[in-house]
Design a protein around this nucleic acid. Structure first.
Lengths: 343, 343
DNA sequence: ATGCTGCGTGAGAGCGCTCTCACCGATCGC
DNA sequence: GCGATCGGTGAGAGCGCTCTCACGCAGCAT
C-alpha cells in the first residue's frame, strides 16, 4: 500500500480503471467484457489497471444495464429435506453448480413442494431475477415449466416431461433401457419370479423404469403379474414396506428390480428380516449407483445413471439457451449395469 | 387478462406501481420498503397496485442504489467433494439457507481449497458483492477472516478461531464437553484402555475433542498414553486406517473415542476386520450424530452436535451484524451423548 | 394573525455499468 | 485525387431503484 491516498474505502469502479488507463469508460468496459474491437495498447493498459486495482465489476450495475441477472436457479419440487438427503439431487446440484460457476454465473437453489411455493417462484422468476431455471423432480403434469417458458424464461428439466408432445427442453437418463438391462440380467441368470418395487408413478423416471421392466417380460413371452409390482417412492422406508408386502403375497419371489438404490436398500432389509438371504434366495438390482451402493455389504448390483452428466448436461443446455442458441430439445444419457454381489 | 394493453413484456417497475396508485415513485418505494411515514390511504393504494401487477422489485436496481447486495456467501474451505459428502456441511448449509432465505436474502455457496481460491474469493468479496460471509472449516491460522473483516465485510465462523485473543465472531459446539462426556462414559462403563482417533489438529474441532479426551484422563488420574492416540481426518478411510494401526500397537484396546461419526464408521470396519466384535471387545463412540448413526447396525453411540442449530446460529449472528447490531462474539451450543449399541 | 413544528409527499440526483451513436483518422478503390 | 469504408474511440443516455432535500399543509402556541 504505497499510495494510501484517494481510492480508500469502497471498491474501484470502471471510472477508476478508465482514468488509470487513460481511456474512456466505454473502452475500459469493452476490454473487460472481452469485446474485439479494441486496440492492443488500450487493452493492455486497461488490463494492467484492472489488475493493479484488483477490480471486480459490480454485478448489480451490470445486471441493471444489461437486463440479465447472470444467475440461474436450481428449483427442486421436493421438500428441502429430500433435496438434502437424496444423493441424486445433491449430485445434480453439485455438477450444475460447477458448470454454471465456470460460465461465470451464480447458482441459487430452492426446494419447494407446495402449489403456493410454485406460484411465488413463478412471480419471482417472472420479475426477471434469473436468466434461466433448472427444474427437477416434476410431478405429474406440472404447468410450471410451460408457464416459465411462456414468460420467456429458459427452462431445462431433468427427466422427460409427462405431457405428450411437449416442446420443453430436458436431459434424462435412459430409464427404460436401464430397467431392461436389470430385468434381462435377472432373467438371464435364471431367476424365475422377478418382482419390482417401482418409483412414484407421477414421475417420468418412475414410469419409465416400470415400462422397461414390463416390456422385457413381454419380449420374453412372460406374463406381467400385477402382484409382483409394488409401488414405492424412491425412499428406503417405502422400499422396505413394499418388499415386505411383495414377499407376503408371493413368497416364491427370487429376484427384485428396485427403482432406486434407496428403494433397494429398503428392500434388502425387508428380505433379510423375512429370514431370506440376499442373492442366495432373492437377487436385488437397484438404480442410480449412489456412493453407498459400492461401499455397502454386500455391494449392490445396480444400474448406474450418470448423475454428474445429467447435471452438466442440464447446465450446458440452459447456458446455450440463455446465449440464444437453439440446441436440441432432448438429451438422453446412457446408463450402465454395474455388477456387484446382490445379483 | 382483461386489459392486454401496454404493460406486456418486461416486468412492471416501481414507476408502473406509482402511476397506478397515483403517487410518486418515492412514496411507492416507501411503502414497499415498509417505511413508516406514509399515510394509510397511500399505503393501501400502493399495496393494491403492487398486488394487481404482481410486482417484484428488481434486485439489481435496489442493490445498486443501496450498496447492499442482499446476499451472503457460504464459503467452505474444503474440496467441493467434501462439501457434498459430509453431512455436517450439508446440514449447516441447509439450516443457514433456510434462515437466510427467511430474511429475504440470497445464499450463494462456494467450496474452495487452494490459496488462490481464497485470494480470488477475497477479491470478489472485497468488491462489495456480498453483505457477509459464513466461513466453514478453517484450517490452522487462516488469515481470510481477518482480511475480510478488515475490508469491512461481516464474517461469521463455524468453530472457534485458533489464533489466541482473536475478536472474530463464531458459533461452535461444545467440543471439549462432548469429548469429555464420551470419554467419561467409556471409563464409567468399565473400559480400561481407551484410545482415540482424532480429527485434524489444524482445526479447532479436532483439537478440542482431543483436549476433552486428554483432560478427562487427567482428571481421573490416568496416564495419557500417546500410543493410544491416532490422527484421523474426520473421514471414513482415515478412521479405518488409524484404528488398524492402534490395534496393532496396542491389541488390548477395549474402547475408542472417534472424533467424528465417519471416523467411527471407519474404526468399526477396522475393528471387525481384525476379528474383534464391536462393543463386546471394543466400545466405540463417535461425534456428530449424523443420520447414518441411528440407522446403521449396530446403532452408533455418539455425541450429538446440534448441526442445524449451528447453521441457524451462524445465519442469525451474521444477519444481526449486517443489520449493524452488536451481538456477542461467541455462541457455544451444548452437545448431548446419545446412547445406542456401540458403547 | 404570525410563527412554529410536524408529517406526508414529490422532484431529482445518483448507484456503476452497458450500449448506441457519432466521430475521428487511416486505408481503400476508382 | 476524392469519396467510401472501417476499425477504434468517447460522449451520453439510460437500466430501476433509493434517498436526500425541499416543499406544502395541517395543527399548535403565541
Amino acid at each position: 500500500m504505497t499510495d494510501a491516498s484517494a481510492q480508500n474505502r469502497s471498491a474501484p469502479t470502471l471510472e477508476d480503471i478508465a482514468a488509470r488507463a487513460s481511456v474512456s469508460r466505454a473502452t475500459a468496459s469493452r476490454v473487460l467484457r472481452g469485446a474485439t474491437n479494441v486496440s492492443a495498447s488500450a487493452r493492455a493498459a486497461v488490463e494492467a489497471a484492472a489488475l493493479e486495482l484488483s477490480y471486480t465489476p459490480n454485478r448489480a450495475a451490470r445486471s441493471l444495464a444489461t437486463g440479465r441477472s447472470d444467475s440461474v436457479v436450481f428449483y427442486v419440487e421436493e421438500t428441502e429435506d429430500r433435496l438434502f438427503s437424496d444423493p441424486f439431487f445433491l449430485g445434480v446440484l453439485r455438477a450444475t453448480h460447477a458448470a454454471v460457476a465456470e460460465a461465470g454465473l451464480q447458482l441459487v437453489f430452492t426446494a419447494a413442494s407446495t402449489a403456493e411455493d410454485n406460484q411465488r417462484f413463478l412471480d419471482y422468476a417472472s420479475g426477471r431475477h434469473v436468466d434461466g431455471v433448472l427444474l427437477l423432480s416434476l410431478h405429474g403434469k406440472d404447468e410450471l415449466p410451460d408457464q416459465l417458458e411462456s414468460q420467456g424464461i429458459p427452462t431445462v428439466l431433468s427427466g422427460r416431461p409427462l405431457t405428450e408432445g411437449s416442446s420443453l427442453f430436458y436431459v434424462d437418463a435412459d430409464n427404460v433401457g436401464g430397467a431392461r438391462m436389470a430385468t434381462e440380467h435377472l432373467l438371464d441368470s435364471g431367476r424365475r419370479t422377478v418382482a419390482t418395487v417401482t418409483g412414484p408413478q407421477d414421475m417420468c423416471a418412475g414410469q419409465d423404469r416400470l415400462t422397461g421392466y414390463a416390456s422385457t417380460l413381454e419380449d420374453r413371452g412372460l406374463p406381467f403379474r400385477p402382484e409382483l409390482v409394488a409401488p414405492g417412492q424412491f425412499s428406503i422406508a417405502s422400499g422396505h414396506d413394499a418388499m415386505q408386502r411383495l414377499l407376503e403375497v408371493e413368497p416364491r419371489i427370487d429376484a427384485v428390480f428396485a427403482a432406486s438404490d434407496h428403494t433397494a436398500i429398503g428392500a434388502i432389509r425387508a428380505i433379510e428380516s423375512s429370514g431370506r438371504r440376499v442373492f442366495d434366495d432373492v437377487a436385488v438390482i437397484g438404480f442410480d449407483d449412489i456412493r453407498d451402493a459400492a461401499t455397502m455389504s454386500p455391494g449392490l448390483t445396480t444400474v448406474r445413471q450418470p448423475i454428474a452428466g445429467i447435471g452438466r448436461g442440464m447446465a450446458e443446455l440452459l447456458l446455450r439457451r440463455i446465449a440464444d442458441e437453439d440446441p436440441p430439445r432432448a438429451t438422453v444419457l446412457p446408463v450402465e449395469l454395474i455388477h456387484r454381489q446382490t445379483a
